[in-house]
């Protein structure tokens, strides 16, 4: 149990992945991975999320769907254990929680942590390496079969920022997204099947 809370703040490659699959520059370029991600046109995936909070003794689990409508609408619909949804469009984020009767719009500018995460995902799904690099230092390990992308925000918001986003995948498929917050909290998103 305690192992969960051994946070890694820096955005370094996961030692497990790095060791088992050494980086092969010849077979795989960063650009082609991003390009591949951008080409997969259907962007609706179910996910399992595990969230590790420093204030809780056990991690929390959520399930739902992640939807991307190019170029900028990103939706995260949590279905279990309670329904809630986050819909990012442009600079705005709509948070909806019917069980608590909350429906509010935020400006992403006020929430840098979210903003970085959303920008990262958007540019990835758009296959837009340039934008991605504007927001993050990007590094990659692995092969085209199994790659790992590490995004470390160029601007650090000490108070409420993201310290690292790590994405893994194979081929054109994104498999996991993990987000490390500067306060030590961490979210692991496991993307499952493509929803038909």
């Amino acid at each position: 149990m305690l192992g969960i809370f051994s946070y890694s703040h820096a955005c370094e490659p996961d030692p497990n992945v790095a060791q088992s699959i050494p980086f092969q520059k010849e077979s795989l370029g960063l650009s082609s991975v991003i390009e591949n991600l951008g080409q997969s046109t259907i962007h609706e995936r179910t996910f399992h999320e595990t969230y590790y909070s420093g204030m809780l003794t056990t991690p929390s689990h959520k399930e739902g769907r992640l939807v991307f409508h190019p170029p900028s609408r990103l939706e995260k619909h949590v279905l279990l254990p309670i329904k809630e949804s986050f819909i990012a469009e442009g600079d705005n984020l709509l948070y909806d929680n019917p069980s608590r009767e909350i429906s509010r719009t935020f400006s992403l500018q006020d929430y840098p942590a979210l903003s970085a995460f959303i920008e990262g995902l958007r540019s990835l799904f758009n296959g837009d390496e340039q934008t991605l690099r504007r927001f993050f230092h990007v590094s990659m390990t692995g092969t085209s079969d199994r790659w790992e992308l590490n995004l470390s925000p160029k601007i650090h918001h000490e108070e409420d920022g993201v310290s690292c986003i790590r994405l893994t995948g194979d081929d054109v498929h994104l498999r996991t997204i993990s987000i490390h917050e500067t306060n030590g909290d961490r979210s692991e998103l496991q993307l499952d099947s493509q929803v038909p």
Partner: peptide, 20 residues
Amino acid sequence: KNRLQDMVNPLPSFFKKQIP
């Protein structure tokens, strides 16, 4: 219970820090 939901949402940490 509501706070439990907030803690595991990507809310800004200044807000989370106030929870305790």
